[in-house]
């Protein structure tokens, strides 16, 4: 059944979600911060700067009017970068009430507080029906209608059902889950591993190396995640293993690109200056590192990426440090 759906955030992923919703026959209000972008999308049916070549269905309309979106749409998808997430959540909070369903598709964690996006929504808005969308979803491929899958996780069955009904399509499979923490941690953590995978690719180290990195990456993710209250199995699903596979393999991934440039010897400042879009992994690395410091975690990959990004450690030194760590029981510290 077609309904009014709001999409807050018009980067490549937000625009893709709006596109899928539009193709499913929903009336979509897509929020842009800047009036020029709004006008451009409405005039050309395309978000040329973030998702060139992807035509939006007639049911998709861009707007800068947040109150209008909250007024018109009961189902709203939030796709705002993690650093701007709280401010936007605070702003819409005043227009929302208990009937609204909020699903966010932001992969990241708040820097200082280490809060997950769903926690921010809970703090800034009166909404209880909150969910998270997370999976191997490279915007470009989905915009080109290539088959993909994802996970929507919420404590509320209603949120899951409504998100599934709105988003499921002939090329997009939406799986259901209740582990909100797992879905959010998975989506955040994989970006750190993707940075490292970019380095591996940049150095042309080969498939064994990458498999080693990803497998140990999932292991770190699961140990960290379960300590945060997630279910270990979630990390074997769309939001864990699935998302990490896609992000680590794809040269589309911004995090992967950062890694490749690091391998070439560029510094973080140079890379960030050259990139237009946000690489969540850069922020996530610092957030996870800051949070875990002194709390008894053993996360060598996170540490290595952190040292390369923020402490100027040379890439080869970081790799050799990882390779000389003591091995042991593969699943030590993991409880299913």
């Amino acid at each position: 059944m077609p309904e009014n759906v709001g999409v807050i955030g018009s980067g490549s992923w937000g625009t893709t979600i709006a596109k899928i919703l539009g193709e499913n026959g929903h009336q979509v209000l897509l929020w842009t911060r800047r009036q020029e972008l709004c006008d451009e999308i409405n005039a050309t049916r395309e978000n040329a700067s973030y998702l060139p070549g992807a035509k939006l269905a007639p049911g998709v309309m861009a707007t800068t009017d947040l109150p209008r979106i909250c007024e018109t749409c009961r189902l709203i998808v939030m796709v705002v970068p993690s650093h701007g997430f709280r401010a936007v959540a605070h702003e819409i909070g005043g227009y929302l009430d208990g009937e609204h369903v909020l699903v966010h598709a932001t992969k990241g964690i708040e820097q200082e507080s280490f809060k997950r996006m769903s926690e921010i929504l809970r703090e800034e808005t009166p909404v209880r029906k909150i969910g998270v969308l997370s999976g191997p979803n490279l915007a470009r491929e989905l915009a080109d209608r290539k088959p993909s899958g994802t996970l929507v996780a919420s404590h509320y069955d209603e949120v899951i059902t409504r998100a599934q009904q709105a988003l499921q399509s002939e090329y997009f499979r939406v799986y259901a889950g209740h582990d909100v923490v797992g879905a959010e941690i998975g989506g955040t953590f994989k970006n750190i591993v993707a940075l490292a995978a970019g380095v591996v690719d940049g150095l042309k180290l080969g498939d064994n190396t990458k498999a080693l990195l990803m497998t140990r990456g999932i292991n770190e993710m699961a140990r960290f995640g379960s300590a945060m209250g997630a279910k270990v199995l979630t990390f074997g699903g769309m939001a864990g293993f699935g998302d990490m596979m896609a992000t680590c393999a794809s040269s589309f991934s911004r995090n992967h690109q950062v890694g490749e440039r690091l391998a070439r010897g560029e510094t973080l400042e140079e890379i960030l200056e050259a990139m237009k879009m946000v690489a969540e992994g850069v922020k996530a690395t610092r957030a996870v590192r800051t949070f875990t410091e002194g709390r008894g975690f053993s996360l060598p990959i996170v540490d290595a990426v952190y040292e390369v990004l923020y402490e100027g450690a040379p890439v080869p030194a970081a790799i050799s440090k990882l390779m000389t760590l003591a091995t042991g029981d593969e699943f030590r510290g993991l409880v299913l």
């Binding site: 909070g93 005043g94 009430d97 208990g98 009937e99 809970r122 800034e124 808005t125 009166p126």
Partner: peptide, 17 residues
Amino acid sequence: LDPQGRPLDARTYISRD
């Protein structure tokens, strides 16, 4: 009141339309 101290209609939590 919502978490920001703004007034809120509690009935909305249990309603659809």
